[in-house]
Design a protein around this nucleic acid. Sequence first.
DNA 1: GAGCCATGGAGAA
DNA 2: TCTCCCTGGCTCC
Length: 289
Amino acid sequence: MPEGHTLHRLALDLGAAFGGDLTWSSSPQGRFAEGAARIGPRVMEGAEAYGKQLFVRFAGLEEQVRVHLGLIGGLAIHSGLPEPGAVGDLDARPVVGQVRWRLESVRAWADLRGATVCTLITPDEKAAYLAKLGPDPLRDDADPSQAWRRINRSRSTIGALLMDQSVLAGVGNVYRAEVLFRHNLDPFLEGRFLRRDEWDAIWGDLVGLMAYGVTHNRIDTVRPEHEPEAMGRAPREDDHGGEVYVYRRTHLPCLVCGTPVRTEVLAGRNLFWCPRCQPRSRRRTPVRG
DNA sequence: GAGCCATGGAGAA
DNA sequence: TCTCCCTGGCTCC
């Protein structure tokens, strides 16, 4: 589920569902029991995302909740009016599976599952985490030049650099594959060989793609002329819902040229690309294997 | 029921 | 580069 757009969307949804309301925290699974008890019944002020990190603020509490969903985590927000007095009554809102943190109010509740991180942190600790992150295309305060300085002097491949949260915050495996495809870039191109105009185009594209992701709560990267209706093909139906060019389309024909999509592990994750639309660059990193 | 996989990342080696 | 953690859904037997 979680690339940066997911977390920004969750921050908006949490704010809309709980902002300004008195909330109750609990940890049915138990692993956030101390934190939940420390928060206690308290007004939630708001939430914000930075890259794939989510921070939740409560009134009168200096610490904030820091959530990182990891690969498999999810935060499900439900709205709906329970029976009066049902807040805290787990029978009224049954716990399904491993719920690390339940947040509820009289009008909504949210269940956090599978997160790698859910903890209370001090302002100093928060600042330290943020300092480690590169610019986030979804934030107005982001400076793409900051990422460019890292990329421009790196011998790592652009495919690896895009996944490095200290270079760029919020991009994950789907956006990395898709943005490289959209710009016909060889994923194995070394960062130091990327041109500034290529970087500016990538950044601008990510800003648009990820903002769309927040709005629609899914990743769509296919241009209008390659959409299913335009090409007379069946829409993609999988757990993401969105239309993509290469992500998880191994061996399937490229939507643009028909060449089978390739896959290989890069930076510890499955990379997908079209060998014809993203040809080997002469600026590419020396041949491996 | 076991095994595998996933939009992530930390820590060991 | 490897190993491990987090959880649920899907496949295969």
